[in-house]
Design a protein around this nucleic acid. Structure first.
Length: 585
RNA sequence: GCCUUUGUAGUUCAAUGGAUAGAACAGUCCCGUCCUAAGGGAUAGAUGUAGGUUCGAUUCCUACCAAAGGCACCA
């Protein structure tokens, strides 16, 4: 069946949806509405139907008709069209028009799912080349749970965009220069013996713990000790200039240790970055951009600094070059934008940061519109909320942070505990624990709309029951276990229905591609999370009320098909969220 | 003070302007010879306040109240 301009669509769901929209539009044009706009959605309660439209209510007034009467007319016309896979069309209260689909639709859609390993992929963003930046930890500092949040959201968005057909490049931007680095290097310098020992014998965890301690001690003396403060400022300068052998040595070593360590975390979380950007590069680059635009009257001199005054546009003033002639974060951001464009010819650039940078980014974008307009128009800033401790905001300066490592290890311990009775080897269990722990964490971040803060409570976030990553993983594992058992019993899969009763599960299974489309459009992973949770619940309900592998039941093979479909939709959906499904748990 | 964002069951979260506001946790009560009980079923419980726009508002607008963030050389 043709979809759009000459393309062919093999997903029966999208085909039916597009045909419905087309048919309704035709009717409205016939009634005199030029470019009709209306909704076609799935009713919350499937008793009402599989699809539903509000078109009659939207246009009743304009056409001077009673909505229910108008709906009746439209329904009559639609019925005359004999739409494929449409069982019946009804008018409901207020003027909703509801569509019920045929049993053959559900058979066909289940076949689609079983045939297509990548079921859920759509082509909405086919020609887009997107660069997306997220996570952004700072070398020499702790990789904390806030970075986990940024990573979870960024990775889910990346995959969502890929499943919408876009080419996606993942980028990470790291602050490898600046006062925080100088503080850490100062701390390292106080313990040369320790540095040497760790360099020769140390493992990655010991090294990074030492760096964290060095930063905290450096930050501590910076505030209380005038001499140390000057010392650290001196180190900062030397890092920029690269004039001091000892400093260079400590800096290079610490930077390497940090980056190696971060790499182990990315691997654990399932992210692979295509581009690594550093402030040590974006700084000089940004400085040049600002200097080249000094005459353009975008910037102003003020108190020795170069600033942009955003007040006229409802923004605020920000410094791009400080009075010492050094580029600030703002200038670096301009440099970064250009660096990205130089590396990759993108159509869209997405930057994911914490919401505290919202107003800051607006100012930078406003400047970009003036001096790098072609880049500004392609750039979108997406914010995520903060992970707050019950005691308030974390501070890595005082060491009052929860390291990502610590949290993941704690969750893993709890998963291991849960599996004590399982007949699995220790290695298998450890493997499963990692997947489940990461799944639990990512799910809890992704289930709410990005941009909102999460008050992080250890006990609650460690829950594996109800709406949780493990619940979904467990459901997929359970489905696999049924499939394995069926294999033993030599029961095959069939997509032919044996009765007319349509299950809630069937009405949900086929919707993945639509959900992927919408979640991608709105950049809202939580829509997918909600869908998958509902799907898992309907499978579990089906599972507990129906014996699937009942050889005396002629529907067994069909039920097995539904099980296979559920497993695939859950597995694909979870993989978009960056959550892996273990074979057992 | 100005700007931005957010206020939904006891708690943590959903809900492209639509139908009876969905879940989960915590409560209360059930389900174990059976495919993984990290499960299933039942029950009770919510849109900050006051206006406005609309056939229809949790959603849009205005005011107020409350919380978070931002507002010059940090990132």
């Amino acid at each position: 069946m043709a979809l759009g301009k000459g393309g062919f669509c093999d997903i029966v769901d999208l085909m039916v949806r597009d045909n419905l929209i087309k048919a309704i539009k035709e009717e409205l044009r016939y009634l005199g509405v030029k470019s009709p706009k209306f909704d076609l959605e799935h009713p919350q309660d499937f008793v009402r139907g599989d699809y539903s439209t509000n078109v009659a209510m939207v246009y009743a007034k304009k056409l001077g008709r009673d909505p229910i009467e108008l709906a009746g007319d439209i329904v009559q016309k639609l019925k005359d069209k004999n739409l494929e896979y449409v069982e019946k069309i009804t008018v409901a209260g207020f003027g909703f028009i509801n569509f019920h689909l045929t049993a053959s639709f559900f058979e066909k859609s289940l076949q689609n799912i079983i045939d297509d390993k990548n079921f859920g992929q759509v082509k909405t963003l086919k020609k887009h080349k997107i660069i997306i930046e997220y996570t952004d930890p700072n070398p020499f500092k702790v990789f904390h749970i806030g970075h986990l949040m940024s990573n979870s959201i960024g990775e889910a968005l990346s995959r969502l965009l890929e499943w919408n057909g876009a080419e996606v490049k993942r980028a990470i931007y790291q602050g490898d220069v600046g006062m925080h680095v100088a503080k850490a290097v100062y701390g390292m310098k106080q313990k040369p013996g320790q540095v040497l020992k760790l360099r020769v014998l140390g493992n990655i965890n010991g090294r990074v713990t030492f760096l964290g301690e060095s930063y905290v001690s450096g930050a501590g003396v910076f505030e209380n000790d005038k001499e140390a403060e000057n010392n650290i400022k001196e180190i900062n300068k030397k890092i920029y200039e690269r004039t001091d052998k000892t400093i260079n040595y400590l800096y290079d070593l610490g930077r390497r240790w940090s980056l190696d360590y971060f790499e182990t975390i990315y691997k654990r979380l399932g992210t692979k970055f295509d581009f690594y950007f550093f402030e040590s590069e974006s700084g000089p680059f940004g400085k040049k951009i600002v200097e080249n635009n000094l005459k353009s009257q975008v910037f102003e001199q003020s108190e020795g600094a170069i600033v942009y005054k955003g007040e006229a546009e409802g923004l605020h003033t920000r410094v791009f070059m400080n009075s010492e002639g050094l580029p600030t974060y703002e200038a670096k951001e301009l440099g970064l934008a250009q660096l990205k464009a130089d590396k990759y010819d993108y159509t869209d650039s997405i930057v994911v940061t914490a919401n505290e940078q919202l107003d800051y980014f607006k100012v930078v974008l406003s400047v970009m519109e003036k001096i790098l307009p072609s880049l500004a128009s392609k750039t979108t800033h997406i914010v995520h909320g903060l992970l707050l401790l019950p005691t308030g905001k974390m501070s890595s300066r005082t060491g009052d942070v929860v390291a990502a490592e610590t949290l993941l290890a704690q969750i893993e311990d709890k998963v291991m505990e849960k599996m004590t009775d399982r007949p699995l080897s220790k290695k298998e269990k450890k493997n499963i624990a990692t997947k489940v722990a990461v799944g639990a964490l990512k799910f809890s971040v992704l289930k709410q709309s990005p941009g909102k803060d999460i008050i992080f409570d250890f006990d609650k976030s460690l829950s594996f029951e109800g709406d949780s990553g493990p619940y979904l993983q467990y459901t997929a594992v359970r489905a696999k276990s049924v499939l394995d058992k069926a294999h033993e019993l030599k029961i095959g899969i069939n997509t032919k229905k044996k009765d007319d009763n349509i299950l809630v599960l069937e009405r949900m299974l086929y919707q993945l591609p639509e959900v992927v489309e919408r979640a991608g459009q709105d950049k809202s992973p939580q829509l997918l999370v909600t869908y998958l949770s509902d799907l898992a619940a309907s499978f579990n309900s089906f599972y507990s009320s129906t014996k699937i592998l009942d050889e005396s039941n002629e529907s067994a093979s069909y039920y097995l098909g539904l099980t296979k479909g559920t497993r695939r939709v859950l597995k694909n959906g979870l993989s978009i969220l960056g959550i892996l499904v273990p074979d057992k748990m």
